[in-house]
Nucleic acid binder design. Structure first.
Lengths: 236, 236
DNA sequence: GAGTGGTCTAGACCACCAA
DNA sequence: TGGTGGTCTAGACCACTCC
């Protein structure tokens, strides 16, 4: 679904109740699913029927049902109709801001220090720039950013000054990507990370691995090692 | 957008190229953003102008732009127009299947054992059922499920047999919720967790905290403690 | 083959908010 | 207050896929 529609929301009262909005249709369908009026696995009426029932256009019903399908509550197939998911795979939207914005959103002052910046070679990628930096929040270590950046995929890379602007932020504006993946895992802080993060060696730290591509070309891969206690949250 | 449209996709060739599809419009706009034809922060033409340019209906442009806004690449405001995000907050969609399905998706056999099941009281919630269970994958510990379930919010709770069906799965069909939150953090395995998971005490483990509500009523809260090495992944 | 969802169109009204 | 996005409509054609 459109993430922008999440959060506090008021139903628009167009046309003063003359006809249903797509949100109203979505709510009505959701109620029937939850009331087990339409039990898991059951097929629900087709769009034309629902449109007639709700007194709206088919396009309105379509939008409502598409939204519920995107949320994992319905499964739709051409010719096969629409069914209530038997085992709904709920989906949560994870926001991934620039680290500086993430720290600022917590009401803290963001700091940044470049730790290492060298040239290297990444197998299967070619020449890369290797960067390690520390982000701080109100002066305390927030997370370590370890990454390589492909020289081939990022024109102007050599000229970037990562002492002045974090690679995290510079890349946002200078290295567009088409797709990527992200993974979360727990790890024990290794001695170097522990030193830079100011925590005990072996302390459990949340690491975020991210990798992006521009088409078939790898752009960058990074590991964010967060200070102990860090949480990543999302809304269901 | 509809999740069903992700993945390998071929542009529909309706009308043999006479007019643009919304995906084509989205791709064209994306190209201009990436080419910095429309730099970060810049205002882009309004929907009517783009519709004229692409030779399609405004609704088609609207759908394309809404999709890009949902992905965090555009910011739209009535009267204010549409702008390219200066600091795009990328969004990733996290799938949250039932644990049994998650294990099965990895091609492993799911196992389940109830460890504890008692009545209790949760401050601010009232009487709850406290459940602790272990999920296994091919016989090896996969994750610990620790949760409370509100008796007030879940009719039929007392009759549920969590030795036969995991609470995780039973709740999917029996305790609909309206909203919830999820958080990831790294922790050190405490002695009890270490024993049940078969890992060393103090080992770094990924914990997932989840909490759901039905309207204003808390439904359940759980902690999933995953075996060391576990990863949670999503696509950008 | 035929039923269902996916999408496009052209027009319309409305809500919101920046100029 | 006017311009912009948000949405609805009624109709249409098409793609997919189950029967």
């Amino acid at each position: 679904m459109a993430a922008g529609q999440r959060g506090g929301w008021q139903p628009p009262l167009h046309r003063c109740g003359v006809s249903a909005t797509w949100q109203a249709v979505r709510a009505a369908v959701l109620d029937r699913i939850r009331a087990r009026d339409w039990p898991p696995g059951a097929r629900i009426p087709d769009e034309a029927d629902l449109a007639a029932e709700f007194g709206c256009a088919r396009a309105t019903v379509n939008r409502a049902l598409r939204d519920l399908a995107a949320a994992g509550l319905l499964e739709r197939r051409r010719r096969g109709g629409t069914r209530v998911s038997a085992l709904p795979v709920r989906r949560a939207v994870l926001s991934i801001p620039v680290i500086r914005a993430e720290v600022a959103a917590r009401g803290m002052a963001h700091g940044y220090r470049l730790l290492h910046d060298t040239a290297g070679e990444e197998p299967g990628v070619g020449p890369v720039r290797l960067v390690r930096a520390l982000h701080t929040a109100d002066g305390a270590p927030f997370c370590l950013e370890d990454r390589w950046i492909s020289a081939a995929a990022v024109p102007g890379l050599a000229a970037a000054d990562f002492a002045a602007v974090s690679a995290n932020e510079w890349l946002v504006g200078n290295a567009p990507f088409t797709h990527g993946e992200i993974a979360f895992t727990a790890a024990a802080a290794d001695p170097a990370d522990a030193r830079d993060l100011g925590c005990a060696p072996g302390a459990p730290v949340l690491t975020v691995l991210r990798r992006t591509w521009a088409g078939a070309l790898p752009v960058t891969a990074l590991t964010l090692t967060h200070a102990p206690g860090h949480r990543v949250t999302a809304t269901l």
